[in-house]
Simulated scan of single mutants.
Amino acid sequence: MAQKINPTSFRLGTTQVWDSTLQNYGKPLNVYSTILHKQLQIQKLLPRYFLLNDFLLNYQEWKIRQNKVLLSIYYSPLTYSQKVQSPKFLKFLPKLLKKSILIEPTIRFYLKLQWSLTPNLIIWYSWHLLDKKTAPKKVILNLCKLLKSYLNFTRVSYFKLGLIETKLIGFKIKLSGKIDSSNQMAKSLEQTLGRLSLTSLSGIVEYSNKEIYTKSGTCGVQVWLFYSIK
């Protein structure tokens, strides 16, 4: 049964918590529904906007309190460079977001020279490789090579009872759909490594999926990252 549902929702309230809590109960928030709807649109827009400017969006944090929006954006360059200047396209984001959410947001940008491993970052990196007409098998191999370098990597995560230290012990990548232009049949490519358990509640599983539209057709990318609690 655990393999048929979202791994994150399966663990909510036991080992994992919500990524964002925007509702302020008992406090007036007149434009909450509008901001929430626009936030979902912006969350899909920002990664694509950064990719078009040769940057990867690591993750974004939203805080909405009393009709005020605070957005923290963590991003990294696609290729490593010792001298990375502040990109000019960031100056247009506040004006763009103000038109979208009808409130002038406070935006903080954090440039990270090293990637912060998240499922969303892996998915958008695969979208970048497919957009560059990289063969699907090479995409899987590149992603596996990247994730292998992060095995046994430790980090601090949010837990039900507070902050904890976790270690990456395994991953799973699946690319399925129309990935071959010479064949009309859908195919599926999958790679796994390490200890993988979708039914155990003693660890943390990060999961993300996305549909990617290519010239060959529609592809579905799924990423599972398995962490053990130290």
Rank of each mutant, 00 (worst) to 15 (best):
P28G: 01
N30Y: 09
N30F: 09
V31A: 10
S33M: 07
T34R: 12
L36F: 11
K38C: 08
Q41N: 07
I42A: 08
I42W: 02
K44H: 13
F50Y: 07
L57P: 03
K63L: 12
I64Q: 04
V69N: 03
L70Y: 14
L71C: 05
I73K: 00
I73M: 00
Y74P: 00
S76H: 01
Y80M: 07
Y80F: 10
S81N: 14
K83W: 04
V84I: 10
S86A: 08
L96Q: 09
S100F: 08
S100M: 12
S100T: 14
I101D: 04
L102Y: 09
L102Q: 13
I103V: 12
Y110V: 09
Y110C: 05
K112A: 05
L113S: 07
Q114E: 15
W115G: 02
L117S: 03
P119W: 03
N120Y: 08
L121D: 04
L121C: 07
I122N: 03
W127Y: 14
L129M: 10
K132I: 02
K133V: 06
P136H: 01
K138Q: 14
V139Y: 01
L141N: 12
L147Y: 06
L147D: 06
K148E: 15
L151M: 15
L151I: 07
L151S: 08
N152V: 00
R155S: 11
G162Y: 03
G162P: 04
L163S: 13
I164W: 07
T166A: 06
